[in-house]
């Protein structure tokens, strides 16, 4: 559940919700069918999006395997896929805190520890640039803020 809605439920125990609180809840619930529909499209086209990103990213990093071992590209794709899936879930929940708490705070320090922030930077830019190729305007617009958040914390 969206963390703000969960907090609202917690804070309002034993009393009636105020009109503004009901409005918040209503807006969240009303938005769910649309978010579920978009989520399914984003899920179905993950592979297509990542294929495009990897195809453009690999020639930019000819030394990656030499620097980080033979599994480097496999891990790169795994990580991008993980970030994408958490972004999709955050979009579905309409909850940036979910993305930060569940993944970004941790992954930020891990990428820093491997000194990979600069190297990964183009991959996130490619992901953002590729949105409009794989998705319609509505899907791109809805997922973009989450990808931008991931990019700003992980590689900027």
């Amino acid at each position: 559940m969206n963390s703000k809605v969960a907090e609202l439920m917690h804070q309002s125990e034993g009393r009636y919700l105020r009109p503004d609180e009901l409005k918040t809840l209503h807006a969240y619930v009303e938005g769910i069918p649309r978010r579920v529909r978009l989520y399914q499209v984003l899920q179905a086209k993950e592979q297509e999006l990542l294929d495009r990103v990897m195809e453009k990213f690999q020639p930019m990093m000819p030394d990656l395997t030499r620097q980080h071992g033979r599994l480097a590209w496999e891990r790169c794709r795994r990580d991008l896929s993980m970030v994408w899936r958490y972004c999709c879930m955050a979009m579905l929940l309409n909850d940036e805190d979910y993305l930060r708490d569940k993944l970004l705070y941790w992954l930020e320090t891990i990428l820093k520890s491997f000194k990979m922030r600069d190297q990964c930077q183009p991959a996130y830019k490619l992901m953002l640039d590729s949105l409009t190729y794989s998705f319609g305007a509505e899907e791109s617009e809805m997922i973009r803020p989450y990808l931008l958040l991931a990019k700003s914390m992980l590689v900027n």
């Binding site: 891990i110 820093k112 520890s113 491997f114 000194k115």
Partner: peptide, 8 residues
Amino acid sequence: SNLLFLLE
């Protein structure tokens, strides 16, 4: 393990 990853 990688030292910095280990420390993190």
